[in-house]
């Protein structure tokens, strides 16, 4: 076995351990757990049996196994980027809602004080 294979396998083991840990802590939904397990196990399979990537490549119609892996990686990265974008948009809007609520509350307070003063 090549050194790089051992490195990748060690990393996959670490990632699996973290994924399961996060699921146990309730930070990961069951569907997300399944997807991540599938992803890491697929990576382990390809690492141990490089020819399986070639098999997959022929199956989907791309020439070489490495090419298929690169295409797949790009798709996954774009998808994750999109998820992060949505997340940021949501957090951004949530901050707005908090800032708005604070502003409206404060203006309600100071406004009624001023009205009391002016009615005196």
């Amino acid at each position: 076995m090549l050194l790089i294979q051992i490195f990748i396998l060690a990393f996959v083991a670490f990632a699996l351990w973290r994924t399961v840990g996060r699921f146990r802590a309730g930070e990961l939904k069951r569907s997300a757990l399944a997807l991540w397990l599938l992803f890491w196990l697929a990576l382990a399979t390809v690492t141990v049996l490089p020819q399986s990537a070639s098999w997959f490549a022929t199956f989907v119609g791309v020439g070489r196994g490495v090419d298929a892996a690169v295409y797949l990686a790009i798709i996954i990265l774009y998808y994750l980027m999109f998820r992060i974008f949505l997340r940021l948009e949501k957090i951004d809007h949530d901050i707005t809602l908090v800032v708005r609520e604070m502003g409206l509350k404060e203006s309600g307070k100071s406004g009624s004080e001023r009205e009391e003063n002016s009615s005196r």
Partner: peptide, 16 residues
């Protein structure tokens, strides 16, 4: 006057 503690942009200000 309603004050946003942080700058949130035109849309946020209009909504408030």
């Amino acid at each position: 006057v309603v004050v946003h503690r942080l700058n949130r942009g035109l849309g946020a200000a209009l909504g408030t």
